[in-house]
Amino acid sequence: MVSLSSSSGSASRRTVVVSAGAAGLAAALAACGGSDKKSQETSSAPAAPQSQSSAPPSSHAASASAPAAPKGPVLAKTSDIPEGGGKIFKDKKVVVTQPAKGEFKAFSAVCTHEGCTVSTVTGGTINCPCHGSKFAVADGSVKHGPAQSPLPAQKITVSGDSITLD
């Protein structure tokens, strides 16, 4: 332990602080590098070629930022969402619709009337079981009250055949 009572203690404290700061920075950078690697391993993006896997973490992170990787968990495959209909993900409180072939939208699954979770997507509408509100699959607008406000849009990304929540 460094003695704080000596006149050279001031220099020793600076050395300790600088060393601790550098070690902390190195640990933080290592943690960041590990995080990037783990997120790539769990994503649905194609694996990087083997020659890149031996690169240091800083250059590995730079190559990971080039392709747009999904920001959230994969909710479904595009084939799981019926054209003109949708699918409700109660655990994520989101509903994903396909109003037209290849066009995917997402909305909150919480009804804007009383906060119930919508229960079905049929006949071109997202339906709330509590008081009968119906919302359009194309834009979440109210088709039948008592709800007065549309379902808020949620951000999703379609990459290949995967739909992810951002």
Rank of each mutant, 00 (worst) to 15 (best):
A45S: 13
K105H: 13
S162G: 01
G34Q: 06
A47S: 13
V118L: 09
T112S: 13
V121H: 06
L4N: 09
P70N: 00
G72S: 07
S10G: 11
Q50S: 12
L29S: 12
P57S: 10
A100M: 06
S10H: 13
T112H: 00
A48F: 15
P129M: 01
A30Q: 03
A47W: 04
I156F: 02
S7G: 10
K134H: 11
T117P: 00
S119K: 14
D161A: 10
P49E: 08
G86I: 03
G115C: 00
T122D: 15
S19M: 11
C128G: 06
V142P: 08
A62E: 12
G9L: 07
L29I: 10
S10W: 14
C111Y: 01
P57T: 03
C130Q: 05
K155D: 14
C111P: 02
T78E: 00
S3M: 11
P99R: 07
A62P: 03
K38H: 14
G160T: 06
G145P: 01
A69N: 09
G72W: 09
P56Q: 12
G33P: 07
L151G: 03
D161S: 11
S133D: 04
A27F: 14
C130A: 07
K93V: 00
Q98Y: 02
V142L: 10
Q98N: 13
V95I: 05
S43L: 00
P129K: 07
G132W: 11
S51F: 12
A106D: 08
Q52W: 11
V142Y: 08
A136W: 04
C128Q: 05
V17R: 11
C130D: 02
F107C: 04
Q154Y: 12
V110G: 05
A55D: 14
P49L: 07
I88P: 07
K77C: 04
R13C: 08
D139H: 09
S44G: 14
F135Q: 08
A64I: 09
A62R: 11
G84N: 06
G86L: 09
S12I: 13
V2F: 13
T97W: 02
G9N: 08
S59H: 12
A27V: 15
P73K: 15
P99T: 05
S58G: 02
G85S: 13
A66I: 15
A147S: 08
P56N: 15
V96D: 04
P146L: 04
P146M: 02
L29N: 10
T78C: 04
H113D: 02
